[in-house]
Every structure is written in structure tokens, then in C-alpha cells.
Design a protein around this nucleic acid. Structure first.
Ligand SMILES: [Mn+2]
Ligand SMILES: [Mn+2]
Ligand SMILES: [Zn+2]
Ligand SMILES: [Zn+2]
Lengths: 156, 156
DNA sequence: CTCCTTATTGAAAATGGTTTCCATTACTAA
DNA sequence: TTAGTAATGGAAACCATTTTCAATAAGGAG
């Protein structure tokens, strides 16, 4: 394990420099927010939350940074069906745990669950291997979401 | 099992009348196309395919019909990350088999796989039961998609 | 069949999340 | 410093989807 990394809130610094990207204040602000926040934020959510502390970071930069982080595999891009993409830190770095989502089609409420995950992950790995071999894909990720009505919405 | 249904291509007629909806030529054209076609079509794909035979069916009606069919649970709405929703017949009616998707993030190619499905479905049912009980959701569906690079795209 | 109610329709305009343009600024290496 | 290039933000463009609204047609009652 290389020394010098994972110090303070800058665990991602090396991730950028290695690819020729620059670690700017805007990128750091966004990454920092994603690391400390728990929800599923849209680009505009993020823009507004950092705008007080970083009034000079524009919405365009937020979009561009999110795209970059997504391409680098550092964040996940989620679609809960409400017309805007939402983001969360990918597992691996930071204490992000592997989880899946349960989405209410009535009110768009989202539950993260980690129960039942163990068996799912085990089967997933197996399926991934099978798919890679049969279809010659290099699999990089998956999305598992259940849809339904929450208690509040199922009572009409 | 009521007689009179499932005759000809009109197996869905009763599905509409029971809910107070009217079976129009546009709706029938769209449903018929979805039944006979195999791909994952966008609203505009559908609009263009039926436009030769039904020039008087507008794009707006296609969108509205797809929303209705989705709400009735007759079709699935899919997001492969290319900015437009895609649709396919839900399983149940017609010979639609339960399957999941493997999406290439390089070229957006989509593979439908039914291998490995048996064990997945079994675990899914179990997980659904657990989630319904724990989170008091009434689960109506799920999305499982793997992402990666196809053989053509992984070779840079 | 005819009439009536109202669900449905299409064309055009509006919406809204996301991208693109482009001139300007901020890094970085030599 | 200086050159080369990555990054930025504000405005404009993009484009899938939705809304508006006057016109139309499905289907039940009679
Ligand atoms: Mn989550
Ligand atoms: Mn499919
Ligand atoms: Zn709900
Ligand atoms: Zn590909």
C-alpha cells in the first residue's frame, strides 16, 4: 500500500494526476460533497449545494465533472425515472458499501438496501463470468433496481 | 378462462375496455408493432415504423399510448443510457420470455440474455419477498442490467 | 342507425435537463 | 517567463418529452 495517499479528504488526488487531469477547486468541491453526503443528488442539487461556498463554480462545470468522475469509475449515474440523472459515490473508495435500490413509482422515494446483498453479489459474480465468456463482453458494472409502491403510496 | 379473448391479434382488446379506455387504430397499430417486433424501439422508432401504414398517427399519440401501456403494465420502459427511452412488450402476454440486458457502454449495443436467468429469477423472488416484508413495498417489477464493453469496443 | 358524452387526437408551442460554443482563465512543465 | 494545453462559465443550442387546445371519433344509450 503506497504511503502518502488517503490523507485528509484528498484521497482522490492521485487518481487525477495519473491521468493528466487537474485537480481544481470545483472538482474537489464536488467530490468532497459526494463523499460527505448520503443522498442521490442531481447535477442541479450539487450545483446549488456548493454554490454558497464556491459561487464561481458553474452548472456546466458540475455536469462536466460528473461526466469525468463517471468515466473514471469514481461515481455511479442512476436513473430513478424522474427525468434527471442522479449520482452517488462508487464503492471502493470511501466507506461506500455495495447496495441496490428499491424505487417507489408513486412518489419516487428510494430505499437503499444491503440486506440480501450477499447472495445477490455471489450470483452476480457468477453470472458476470458466464456472460463475459459467452458474449465476449468486458463487464464493468451492473444495475439492480426493484420497482413498486411504498406503504404510503400503495394505500392509494 | 373467459372465451372470446386471445382471438387473432386482438388479445389486448378486453384489457382496454375493462378500464374505460378506447381501442383506437393508433393504439392497435402500436401494440401490434410491439408484438411482432423484437428490438428495443424508441418512441420515434415506433412513430416512423407505423407512419407508412398509419400516416395519421402523430408522435404525440405514440408517446401517450406508450405511457398508457406502461401504466397498464403491458410494456416495459428501458433506459440504455442513450438519452431516449426504449420499449418492449412485458412478459406474460404473447411469447415474451423473461430476460435481462447486457449493454455496451461503447456502442450502445444491447444483448438480451436468458441464460443464467433461472437462478437469478429464483433469487429475485426471494429477495422481493424479503424487501416487501422489511420495507412494506408492493413490488411490481425489477431492472437488471450489466454494463461493459463488447468485443468490438474493448479492442479500443 | 342516430345522438350525445367524453376520451382521444394531432400540430404547434412549451418545457427542462443536458450539451455545445467560444472567448477567457488557470495549470504545468521547461 | 513563456508556451502549450486543460479547464471554466455564461449563453445559446439541443432534443426528447410534455402541455395546450381546438377538432375528432369511439362507443354506449335510446
Ligand atoms: Mn444509492
Ligand atoms: Mn429486451
Ligand atoms: Zn411512494
Ligand atoms: Zn460496443
Amino acid at each position: 500500500m503506497p504511503r502518502g495517499h488517503c490523507r485528509g479528504q484528498g484521497w482522490w488526488r492521485g487518481r487525477f494526476h495519473g491521468c493528466g487531469y487537474r485537480l481544481t477547486s470545483g472538482r474537489e468541491a464536488i467530490l468532497s460533497l459526494l463523499s460527505s453526503s448520503k443522498g442521490h443528488m442531481s447535477a442541479e442539487d450539487i450545483y446549488m449545494k456548493i454554490h454558497t461556498a464556491y459561487p464561481n463554480v458553474g452548472l456546466t462545470t458540475v455536469y462536466r465533472t460528473l461526466e469525468l468522475l463517471f468515466d473514471l469509475g469514481m461515481i455511479c449515474k442512476l436513473d430513478f425515472g424522474d427525468g434527471r440523472a442522479r449520482y452517488e459515490l462508487a464503492e471502493g473508495a470511501q466507506g461506500a458499501r455495495h447496495h441496490h435500490h428499491l424505487v417507489c413509482t408513486g412518489c419516487n422515494r428510494v430505499v437503499e438496501y444491503t440486506d440480501f446483498i450477499d447472495k445477490e453479489v455471489e450470483l452476480l459474480k457468477e453470472t458476470e463470468r458466464g456472460l463475459e465468456e459467452k458474449y465476449h463482453f468486458k463487464i464493468t458494472g451492473h444495475v439492480i433496481q426493484f420497482y413498486g409502491l411504498c406503504d404510503r403510496c400503495s394505500g392509494k
